[in-house]
């Protein structure tokens, strides 16, 4: 089984910040839970703090 952690994501279209499950080696299409855009940036810790 793949190990799952959580990651911070930001929708680059609507600016919605959220956390979601991240699995090692995962292969899934991400979309914003708010606006359904695919412009989802996986925020590294530094970027997320900004």
């Amino acid at each position: 089984m793949a190990t799952a952690t959580t990651g911070n994501f930001r929708c680059m279209m609507c600016g919605h910040d959220y956390t979601d499950k991240v699995e090692k080696g995962e292969d899934r299409e991400r979309s914003c839970p708010k606006c359904r855009s695919n412009s989802i940036r996986h925020m590294k810790k530094k970027a997320a703090d900004k």
């Binding site: 680059m12 600016g15 292969d27 299409e29 695919n38 412009s39 989802i40 940036r41 590294k44 970027a47």
Partner: peptide, 29 residues
């Protein structure tokens, strides 16, 4: 197209580092 995601993620970082709003680059399927 998974390579596209990797590349766009990297570009967002680059744009931010250069002081360019990363939102100016968008990705859609």
């Amino acid at each position: 197209n998974r390579q596209t995601v990797v590349r766009v993620q990297r570009l967002w970082d680059k744009l931010e580092k250069a002081g360019v709003r990363p939102e100016r680059l968008q990705l859609e399927w």
